[in-house]
Nucleic acid binder design. Structure first.
Length: 423
RNA sequence: GUGAGUGUCGCCUAGUGGUUAAGGCGCCAGGUUGUGGCCCUGGAGAUCGAGGGUUCGAAUCCCUUCACUCACCCCA
């Protein structure tokens, strides 16, 4: 039958079926709890934005903008893009709503569908869900540390083990260009020993050379000049300060001079949470960093900011691998069964009444046999059943059956609600 | 965009040239008059991803194509 259906979910998209929903809700609840503690407020931005917003912020040369966006023209000819990340829209909203007038930093969080046109693989989808938070309008390194600690606590609160926090500083607009020159210089001497991908990276994005996973390239990267050693005095001081706050907060972080983030807008602090036993595949569970120039580039006055984002599907994947199951709700419900037309009429009435009282009630359509109804009650995991047979209807009663213990007794219909409030 | 692997009922799987494609799970219905969970019986459900070819004969061999998966690139 598989091939016979005309329609299927588009490549790289998935249906999140009822059986999976528990994981997502669990993650969302933990996230919301953490945000509440740190004073973050939820924000929702549109699914799509003016295309120029993303070109401007993510960087015109990056893969995301070059070939991974879902872009279209609306009916008036405006270029629109399904959001490929969460930070830029929030900066836009910050400016659009004059949030610089609020007490700084403005702390916002979001759950958002993210779209990137890529070849799907494990933990990577064309449409996926991200949770992220942003603190805008504050440059204090203590905030960097707080954000990193918050991200760390989020993952720990889910019960995730075997994860690590990597931190690095990639400098600012003043000290990064000279560093990149040094890096280019270094790599031009080793370029012939590098893998083909790295040769391409050399021209396109020199920074990325550092995190090539090939052993040979890693050796080369190990000898490469480190960004932290070429920071300007201000950035150096900032990074030092972030580190010391992280120690105060007791976040078990690791400095990783090869950590580079994919988006152009990052400055100074960058960080990433990775599964420890990464099999080479999708190593990033979540990550973020400072973007002190971004809001200025969007036309606002210079405003420092920092944020974090993580992919929900990737978290679910890791939870499953570690055997962590979300807590299940224990709502078992009530089943109302019936025989005959009059029994059905009584069942309709009782079902409605119980539901008005806020209870989970099942009953069946189609005048099935009682056996069939009881089987269904069992399959649905109902705790007990009410049965309206001919006798009960005649007597003005209903059969109350405990499906766990297996015993049953007849009760007057008027006493049903009382009975339930006692249970 | 590149490379590799896989495609048999809703799910998992057997079947590697020969009569009506098999089993498990799940689903539905029965196992005497109105009752679940265990058990038993029966039923529905697959033109074996699609198209073409080889052959007397193909789910099984060949080609093409599509889809999925994994990896690379990149990222969450």
């Amino acid at each position: 039958m598989k091939g016979a259906y005309l329609y299927k979910a588009p490549r790289g998209t998935t249906d999140i079926l009822p059986a999976e929903q528990g994981y997502f809700r669990y993650i969302e609840e933990r996230a919301a709890d953490i945000c509440q503690c740190y004073g973050y407020k939820r924000i929702d931005t549109p699914l799509f934005e003016d295309s120029r917003l993303f070109v401007r912020t993510i960087g015109p040369g990056t893969d995301i903008v070059e070939k991974e966006t879902y872009s279209f023209e609306d009916r008036s000819g405006q270029g629109m893009t399904l959001r490929p990340e969460g930070t830029a829209p929030i900066c836009r909203a910050y400016l659009e709503h004059g949030m610089h007038n609020l007490p700084q930093p403005v702390k916002l969080y979001y759950f958002a569908a993210i779209f990137r046109y890529e070849r799907p693989q494990k933990g990577r989808y064309r449409q996926h869900q991200q949770f992220g938070f942003e603190a805008l309008g504050e440059g204090d390194p203590a905030l960097d540390a707080e954000v990193i600690e918050m991200a760390w606590r989020f993952f720990k609160s889910l019960g995730l083990r075997k994860i690590s926090m990597k931190v690095n500083s990639i400098g600012c607009r003043l000290c990064r260009p000279p560093y990149l020159e040094k890096l280019t210089e270094y790599y031009s001497e080793h370029i012939d020993q590098m893998c083909p991908e790295c040769k391409a990276r050399f021209r396109k994005n020199t920074l990325r050379l550092l995190d090539c996973k090939k052993p040979l390239c890693q050796d080369t990267a190990a000898g490469a000049p480190k960004s932290v050693q070429h920071l300007c005095p201000e950035c150096k001081e900032h990074f030092k300060s972030v580190s010391s706050y992280l120690r105060l907060l007791r976040v078990p972080y690791k400095k990783d001079h090869r950590l580079v983030r994919g988006l152009d807008y990052y400055t100074r602090t960058v960080f990433e949470v990775q599964p420890k036993d990464e099999g080479g595949a999708q190593s990033a569970l979540g990550g973020g960093g400072r973007y002190d120039d971004l809001i200025g580039e969007l036309g606002g006055k210079p405003t420092p900011a920092i944020g974090f984002a993580t992919g929900i599907e990737r978290i679910v994947l890791n939870l499953k691998e570690q055997g962590i199951k979300p807590p299940v709700s224990d709502a078992q419900g009530i089943y109302v069964a019936y025989l005959g037309h009059e029994g059905k009429a009584e069942a309709v009435k009782l079902t409605a009444e119980l539901r008005r009282a806020g209870m989970l009630v099942h009953w069946s359509f189609g005048n099935k046999s009682l056996k069939s109804q009881m089987r269904q009650a069992n399959a649905l995991g109902a705790e007990f059943a009410f049965i309206f047979g001919e006798d009960e209807v005649r007597n003005g009663t209903v059969m109350y059956r405990d499906l766990v213990e297996g015993d049953q007794w007849e009760v007057p219909i008027d006493e049903v609600v009382n009975l339930l409030t006692q249970v």
